[in-house]
Design a protein around this nucleic acid. Sequence first.
DNA 1: TGAAATGTTGGGGCG
DNA 2: ACGCCCCAACATTTC
Length: 473
Amino acid sequence: MERPLIAWFRRDLRLADNPALHAAAASGRPIVPLYILDDTGPWSYGGASRWWLHESLKALQADLTALGTPLILRRGRADKVLAEVVAETKAAGVVWNRVYEPAAVARDKSIKSDLKKADVSAESFNGALLFEPWDLKTQSGTPFKVFTPFCRTALKMPSPREPLPAPKSLRRFESKIASDALASWNLQPSKPDWAKGLREHWTPGETAAAARLDEFRDDAVAAYIKDRDLPGETGTSRLSPYLAFGEISPHQVWHRAARWEPGGGVTGFLRQILWREFSAHLLYHFPQIPDQPLRDDFAEFPWRHDGEGLRLWQRGLTGYPIVDAGMRELWHTGWMHNRVRMVAASFLVKHLLLSWREGEDWFWDTLVDADLANNAANWQWVAGCGTDAAPYFRVFNPVLQGEKFDSDGAYVRRWVPELGALPDLWLHKPWEAPEAELQAAGVVLGKTYPLPVVDHKAARTRALVAFAQMRSG
DNA sequence: TGAAATGTTGGGGCG
DNA sequence: ACGCCCCAACATTTC
């Protein structure tokens, strides 16, 4: 029996532009496609991600089966399971695409060395980032800590490689290999089944990812500059979960964007793609950012502990309509519009004075696009404890943000229907509405919709005092 | 990838 | 007719 190559799928659940799979196919050897569910490390997948993963693996399974090489599913410590599959198949080698998170880097390094000791080849590829984290440096040779110069430098680099085609065929490995049944992993919620909203809003998988990118063509990109900040519009690409699971690669997105009509829309869009890149590079160079503030002076910050306040934020019951709309969109669909993420995150950290870590945990569990680097870097940005962070005194006013970015109230009315009949004038600040208007709209504050959990002005002052004290202390 | 407070300016009402 | 005041509207600074 010819010794196969194991194509180890990880955060690259696609056939097209998959460098490891491409190399495996080119080797001419039989291929064993393998996915390992490893829940043993820190930051294992949260609930929404697990739902997505199930669907995505199902899609990958079908696509690989169509090529005649079914996907093998195993569960457990990745190093241990991989060694078992290597032994069972007498594999000649293993190929994979790199994951640039600290735990994965350490694990993969040790796996690679173990494999080589056992005389099994091991080769890893870049299928996840446009630029290697070690290739983008400041003039003094240090990693970038500020986005703008990072972005400028990235745009001056040689263009990222063109996407690779999906393999037309893969040689099947003929012996039988045990595989878990996907259903046995219980990635999908059962009782209660909270995934209804996710199913309604998303179709995971490589085919759906490509279709989503196709929809986001010239006219959508032209509108991007105008609509991308308006949560009531479908102005953004909504590619984030597909990118998070590698159902589409940044190279595919990048080179498609290069074909679009040049202009502000494309530039703004590529900038967002580079934010993803920036976060990944930050995590690579500063591996502690998911758990520790990057700025030391935040280490002792007196975050409040307030379980009830946290719960109200999580459930979208803060009494600030734009915040509540966002948190409910997240709960229902596993996704939140970027503008609202900033407002809701700022509210947790500044208005409630709860730690960004609590927000990071909640987003990790509820977002279908949960990504360790993006989640950590962006929460630190909001909290002001990252390097290129929002200044501590920048406090979003949820009323003004609502009035500015959801002026017709479409977004709030969608997610906070109990305020739906209120006129635009009061929609973002129902507590200021005259009693007659509330009554006409069927709103009873404190009953059908909560009163504000904190007063904006007082909360703002409280935050400014706390943050200023930290700076001086 | 803010907001609020404070400062400045200029048009118009008004004595 | 003139100066005074009020207060938008805009600019600057402060948090």
